[in-house]
Structures are given as structure tokens and as C-alpha cells.
Design a protein around this nucleic acid. Structure first.
Lengths: 257, 257
DNA sequence: CATATTTAACTAACTAGTTAGTAAAATAAT
DNA sequence: ATTATTTTACTAACTAGTTAGTTAAATATG
């Protein structure tokens, strides 16, 4: 287990192990939640002994918080990038809506962790999200608000509450992916299949072009432009599930002998 | 323990205990999830012995499924009622959007259970939701689709994908409540406080009036009409949480001795 | 050798589900 | 109507298994 020959020093190898633990944690926590994830499983996936988790991070919750922070790093940057692009406020907002849609499925782990954190927050648990408020959520929310206000002031967008536009836009994306397995049962077709997703992606932006732009013809043009400028990224992250029904649980073991 | 004098027969008392168990289950499961809820705690809250849960429902999952079905009964009726009201398609849709907003906070337990079920579905777990697909979700989705198509055909609503209108509308409501504890940390004000909620309720409908109606003046009128016809219901269901931070976990006990 | 990293072995606490038994109500027999 | 028998509703105590976290020893590495 003397690792790859490229890594020699003690420090480097330790850092690498640490990173492997974080990777495995993101994987396990995003799929099974804080309570559902098993430390033993994380250790195994990282190829280390369970006690090592407690050597690097003091507790399961500490590990969870670290995993959350490590995955959140990239989100802020890409989110702000679209909002600061060189384009009209309306176009920047559509770009950012599209980026949000794409990010949900390319970085599904992050989305999954966030959804579980929201539930935990409602229960009054979770310190884990607190640090991300300042580093990620506040900057993104604020910037988006500014862009929308700018678009409204310039007359490009309709004069409605910017937060409401935000809720409707992000909410649509969140709900699409969150409800996908349910809608699959309702409609028979899988919203996570690439074709369906590509269509939804297009309809999402076109809808915004028609709904929040004062001049709907202009909105349609901007939507088309944004869509043609940003092709759908490769299938990223939502781990495909087998047939919806039969599948033995993991987090809640059934033990009827 | 001969209970109240009004209940004499064995059968009646048994039905009552069964109902008490279901009530306690809804409470516990909605607050702690399937895995997080403790059978002992459910039994205690229902005032019965734990083994009785297994006498009435064969397993924890069976109890969960029964609780879910019992709470879902009311949702279909109220949802369909607004969609079938006597009004234009556009107005019926706004009514139904408003009913959805109100239902989320008056029947928070249902919403909470649904959100957790969505996550479970993504993991490939959950038979519990399957029966509700036919009895609740399919009828509601179908009817809403019909209403939207009617509104588009009549020219009252803009010609965009009906499903996209649904995602944007319901998604906005879901995200508002789901992200409330996070937004409270971001903005400092509590979205679940009654004043804020009343405002959001109004902005939600007004936004739809401006965004999905072909004639925005007409949309504004319909929105005002729907809002004045339906006052905000009394504070229903989201259990208020103390100060966001400090609060010992329940589902994931920390046992560092 | 001394220090940082890693592990095998262990434990204390907890939890879903079971079992064996009881009290009282319902039903059948006399 | 009284007694005997069966069924229903319910409980106390227990089992078997799981899991987060600890400890002390081992293994590199500088």
C-alpha cells in the first residue's frame, strides 16, 4: 500500500488520504444522508480504516461538514460567472437559470446534499450549512437580486418582485429534478432520460423568455440566443436507478428473520 | 383504563387506538423521517405498547405507508375542487396555485412527508408512495394539465408548455417553504413569519398574473380577484423552530462520551 | 529514535422486531 | 341467564443485530 511512486513525502500522502476520505464522504452522504451513511462504508470506499476518519475529522458530523464545504467550492464561482457575463440583465438572468439547470444534473451530489440539508434545517438540526451561507448563498442571492433589479429598471423585465422571479425560476428547476422519479411513475416516461432533459432545458428558458420579459418577442430572441450559446453538458451526476420498484433498502435495514 | 364512557364496544376502542397510532406516526415520521422516527417514541406518543404497532401494522414500513395514505386522503379533494371551480381556466389555475401555497403551510406534515419520499425515491427506496400515484398525483396532474391547455387554447394564457407552467408555479411554492430556514439565515428575516408569508402569497399570484397571461392587465385583474376571494388561512402546520442554531439532534444522536 | 500516520480489536448505546403471556370482551353452550 | 370457551386487544421483557466512536498498538517516515 505504498501508493503511487509519484507521491513520496509523508505530507503529500496524508493529504491524498484526506482527499480520498472527503471524496468517499461526498459520495456516501449524498446518496444516504447524514444519518443514513455508514462510517464503515465511507472508510471502505476511501480504502482506509474507520478510525482514520476520526483521526482527520473529529466526528461524523465534522466529516459531513467538511464534505459539504469541499463540494460547495465550485458552485459559487460558476454561479457568479453567468450573472456577471457581458450581456443585458435579462440575458444574464437566463444564462444563470440555464447554468442552474445544468448544474443540478452535472453536480447532482451537491444538489442532493442541499436538499437533505434543507430538511435537516427544518428540523432545527444542521450547523453544517451555516458557513456556506456567507461564502455561497448570500453572494449568489444578492447578485441575482441585483441583476433582476437592473433588468426591471431598464424595462427589459416586467415589474414584479425579483425574489418571486427567483423562486419561480430556481423552483422550477429544483422541482423538475426532485420530482423526477415521481413524475416517471405518473407519466411513464423518465424525466432524467437525456432526451427529456434536453427538452425541459429548452422549455425552461423559453418559458422565461415569454413570462418575465416585457417584450415577449425580445424575450424569445434572448432565450434562443442563450440556448444556442450553451449546449447541454454531458451526463454528469444523477446515479441512474434500476426499475423504480424493487430494491432493498440500505439506510433502513429490514430484519425479519 | 375503561376510557371515555361514550365508547363501549371493544371494536370502537380498538379503532380509536389504531387512529391514535396513525396520528402519532404522522407526527413522528413527518418530523424525523422513516429512518429517523423511533417506534418506541411513536408508541409512547400514542399511549400504547410498542408491540401494538406490530399487531396493527406488520412493520415500521407498513406503519409508514398507512400513515402516508391516511394523510393523503384530503389532498386530492381540495386540489381538484379549485381546478374544477366555476371560472375561466386562467382563474382556476391561479386559484389552484393559491390553494397549493396555502396547503403547504396548513398541511405541512404532508409536505414534509412528500419531500422525504422524493428523496427516498431518488435512492430507489419507497414503495410507500406508489399507491398514491393513482389516487392522488395522477388525477391532480392530469386535471391541471387540462385546465392549462384550455387556458392556452382560449388565448387567455400564453402559448408555452403547460408542464413548464406547472413546474414554475408549484416549484416556486415548494422552494419558498423548503428554503425558508436557509433564506432566514441569508436575509435575517423569517419567511415563515405570518406577515412575510402573506406577502409572498400575494406576490406569487400577482407574478402569475403578469407572467402567464397573454393580456397582463387581465392577468392582474384575475390575480386581484382570486386573492380577494381567498383569505389566508390560519397558521396551520409548520412547527416553529427555536433559534436556528443550537438544538440537539434527534435522528442522529451524538454519543461522544 | 521520535513523530505522524494507520490499523485491529473493542465497547457502550441503541433499536427494530419478537415472544410469551394476560385481561377483558365477545360468542357459544347449557 | 349463567357458565364455559374463544378471540381480540394489549403489555413487559427480551433478543439479535447494528453503529458511532475509542484505545492501544503497529508501521512507516524523516
Amino acid at each position: 500500500m505504498t501508493a503511487s511512486p509519484s507521491i513520496r513525502t509523508k505530507r503529500e500522502r496524508a493529504d491524498q488520504t484526506r482527499a480520498r476520505i472527503l471524496d468517499a464522504s461526498i459520495h456516501e452522504f449524498s446518496e444516504n444522508g447524514l444519518a443514513g451513511a455508514r462510517t464503515e462504508q465511507i472508510a471502505e470506499a476511501a480504502g482506509v480504516n474507520k478510525a482514520l476518519l476520526y483521526y482527520y475529522f473529529k466526528s461524523k458530523e465534522g466529516l459531513y461538514a467538511a464534505a459539504l464545504e469541499s463540494i460547495a467550492v465550485g458552485v459559487r464561482a460558476s454561479g457568479l460567472a453567468t450573472l456577471n457575463a457581458n450581456a443585458s440583465a435579462g440575458e444574464r438572468f437566463l444564462k444563470s437559470a440555464l447554468e442552474h439547470f445544468d448544474r443540478i444534473h452535472t453536480n447532482w451530489r451537491f444538489q442532493s446534499l442541499m436538499q437533505q440539508e434543507m430538511v435537516r434545517l427544518h428540523r432545527g438540526e444542521a450547523h453544517a450549512l451555516t458557513p456556506l451561507v456567507e461564502t455561497v448563498f448570500k453572494p449568489l442571492t444578492t447578485r441575482m437580486h441585483e441583476v433582476l433589479l437592473e433588468g426591471i429598471a431598464s424595462g427589459e423585465l416586467i415589474d414584479v418582485d425579483p425574489s418571486q422571479i427567483r423562486y419561480a425560476t430556481l423552483g422550477a428547476n429544483v422541482l423538475y429534478f426532485l420530482s423526477a422519479p415521481l413524475m416517471r411513475m405518473v407519466s411513464g416516461t423518465d424525466p432524467l432520460e437525456r432526451g427529456a432533459m434536453g427538452l425541459r432545458r429548452k422549455l425552461t428558458i423559453e418559458f422565461l423568455g415569454q413570462s418575465i420579459f416585457r417584450d415577449r418577442k425580445h424575450g424569445a430572441k434572448v432565450a434562443a440566443q442563450v440556448l444556442s450559446a450553451t449546449p447541454m453538458p454531458e451526463n454528469g451526476g444523477i446515479p441512474p436507478r434500476p426499475t423504480p420498484e424493487f430494491r432493498k433498502n440500505k439506510s433502513e435495514k429490514v430484519r425479519h428473520l
